[in-house]
Design a protein around this nucleic acid. Structure first.
Lengths: 111, 111
DNA sequence: TACTTTCTCCTAGACATTCGACATATATAC
DNA sequence: GTATATATGTCGAATGTCTAGGAGAAAGTA
C-alpha cells in the first residue's frame, strides 16, 4: 500500500513527447504507449495531461499535426517535429542533463 | 541569449531540501546556499519557493525547526530531519532514481 | 444480437508547486 | 551614511498535472 508517487517527473513531459515524436510520426495515443513501453511501465502519461500538452506544443510551433489513418485503419492525429521543435528538443535535452546531473551531485554528497 | 530555463527540476525541491538537511542542522538561507554551491551554480532556489517549502515540510512532520544563532551571531531558524523525514527522504530518493532512470532510457532510444 | 474492451480524441475544474515582487531587519564593509 | 550580505517571510500570478468526465468507432466475446 505504499502510495505510488506521480507517474512523471514534473516538467519532463514536453521533453518526452518531443523525443518520441522525433523518432517518427506518431499519434497521441501511440505516444503514451511508447512512453510506457520504453520506460518499462515506470512512466505513464494520463490522457488529461497528454492532450493538453500536445496542443501546447503544437501552438508553440514545435509539433505539426495532420489527420491520417492508424495501423488498424482508424482516424488519428499524427504529430511530427518541426524544425523549431528539433531545436527545442536539443535544448530541453541538454537542459535536462544539466539539471539531472546537478541533482545527482547533491544526492551523492557523502553522508 | 538563450533563455535560461528554470533553476530547478519541478518536484525535486523537497528532495533536495531533505537531503541537505540530512547532512546536519541548517537554516533556510544556508540550505539555498548549499544547493547552489554543491550543484556548482546550476540549481538555485528562490526565496519565494524556499520558505513555503520549508513550512510545508515542517507541517508534514518531516522537518523540525528551532531558533538559534547562525555562525555570525544572527537569529536563524535551524532545521533538522525527523524520523519521518528520514523515511521520506529514502522514499523520495529511490523514487527519483526510478523516474530519472526511466527518463534516461527514453532519451537514449537510438535515433 | 448484445456486451465489453480497445483504440482514439477531447475538455473542465481542482490542486500543488514555483516564481517574481515585495516587505522587513541586523551586521559588516566602505 | 550608504550599500551589501545575511536572514525570514508573504502574496499573487502562472504553469502544469491529475481526476473525472464525455464521445465514438472497431473488434472481440457471449
Amino acid at each position: 500500500m505504499p502510495i505510488e508517487k506521480s507517474d512523471l517527473l514534473q516538467g519532463t513531459l514536453d521533453l518526452l513527447i518531443l523525443k518520441i515524436v522525433a523518432l517518427g510520426p506518431v499519434h497521441g495515443y501511440g505516444i503514451s504507449q511508447r512512453i510506457r513501453q520504453i520506460s518499462k511501465e515506470v512512466l505513464q502519461v494520463q490522457q488529461g495531461s497528454l492532450y493538453p500538452a500536445l496542443h501546447r506544443l503544437e501552438k508553440r510551433g514545435w509539433l505539426e499535426a495532420e489527420w491520417g489513418q492508424s495501423s488498424n485503419g482508424r482516424e488519428a492525429k499524427f504529430y511530427k517535429l518541426s524544425a523549431k521543435g528539433r531545436k527545442q528538443l536539443a535544448s530541453e535535452e541538454s537542459n535536462w542533463n544539466r539539471l539531472a546531473g546537478a541533482v545527482a551531485q547533491i544526492l551523492q554528497t557523502a553522508d
